[in-house]
């Protein structure tokens, strides 16, 4: 059946619904940026967008191609140095929501954005942490956005760049991490949430037309799921209109 919306549109809409009005969000480029601006246009007009480049309260008039786009400066509430972003805002606990993605996500929401293969001579060298490691430590809660496939959700990471709910058997509390870590993984097929007991990401909701088997086949560990799975509404007409006509008309990030 041909779908009336793409997986990227669904992910952006689902991520946007996670954001409450007035929340302070550390924004990444791509889908997180679309999600934040979609939320700003709908239920969260007072969402405060902070970019690691130093833009605080950004109101980008065009879709920023990079995290340091000049449109993040024009009209912002504040421009500060990166030392201020990481120390006064992030480490000081002022960021409520952080968005992360990655080449690999494991069952605890640990993320690899560093290498595929060994560190010394990797098969694929990825960009590395950027600000991800510290966002994972400090944001009050983290939302992961990633498409499901077995390579992206392996049993073991090749490298642990950004910490999730358990690192090498230790809890975040034991490791002294202030933030709650990844609480949700928003995928193209459904939503995983961290289980408070085990720290594992468990399936809690399926998107329209997706089966449990379909999700399990794309995850590299024995995925647990809630006894009763929630349903997720498809993108509304208004969400799709904003995404397609206003936020990403050239389809830079909405495949």
């Amino acid at each position: 059946m041909a779908s009336e919306y793409t997986p990227s549109e669904m992910m952006a809409a689902v991520a946007a619904r996670e954001l409450g009005n007035g929340e302070v969000v550390f924004v990444g480029i791509g889908l997180p940026n679309l999600a934040c601006n979609l939320a700003r246009a709908l239920q969260a007009p007072d969402l405060v967008l902070i970019y690691e480049s130093g833009a605080v309260g950004a109101v980008p008039e065009r879709l920023p191609v990079s995290i340091g786009d000049p449109s993040l400066v024009t009209g912002s509430l504040m421009i500060c140095s990166m030392a201020d972003v990481f120390q006064l805002f992030l480490q000081n606990g002022k960021i409520e929501v952080g968005f992360l993605g990655g080449a690999q996500v494991d069952r605890y929401g640990n993320i690899n954005t560093t290498v595929i293969g060994g560190y010394e001579k990797p098969k694929v060298r990825l960009p590395g942490s950027g600000g991800a490691a510290e966002i994972a430590v400090h944001a009050q809660r983290v939302l992961i956005i990633s498409r499901l496939n077995p390579r992206a959700f392996p049993a073991e990471l090749d490298f642990l760049t950004s910490p999730g709910q358990r690192c090498k058997g230790k809890t975040r509390q034991e490791l002294g991490m202030p933030g709650a870590g990844p609480v949700k993984v928003i995928t193209d097929k459904g939503i995983l949430e961290s289980d408070p007991e085990s720290g594992e990401m468990v399936l809690t909701a399926l998107y329209p037309g997706v089966t449990l088997e379909d999700v399990k086949a794309n995850v590299g560990w024995p995925l647990q799921s809630r006894a009763e799975l929630g349903a997720v509404a498809p993108p509304t007409g208004e969400e799709l209109r904003l995404l397609r006509e206003v936020l990403d008309p050239r389809k830079l990030f909405l495949g």
Binding site: A83, K168, R172, L175, P178
Partner: peptide, 24 residues
């Protein structure tokens, strides 16, 4: 950023609450 902050402040190192659990 912390490495440059230390260099700029004339200190030998800089501290952060960071990297717990990671392979960095």
């Amino acid at each position: 950023v912390a490495r440059m902050s230390a260099g700029a402040a004339g200190l030998p190192f800089w501290t952060m609450r960071n990297y717990m659990g990671t392979d960095l």
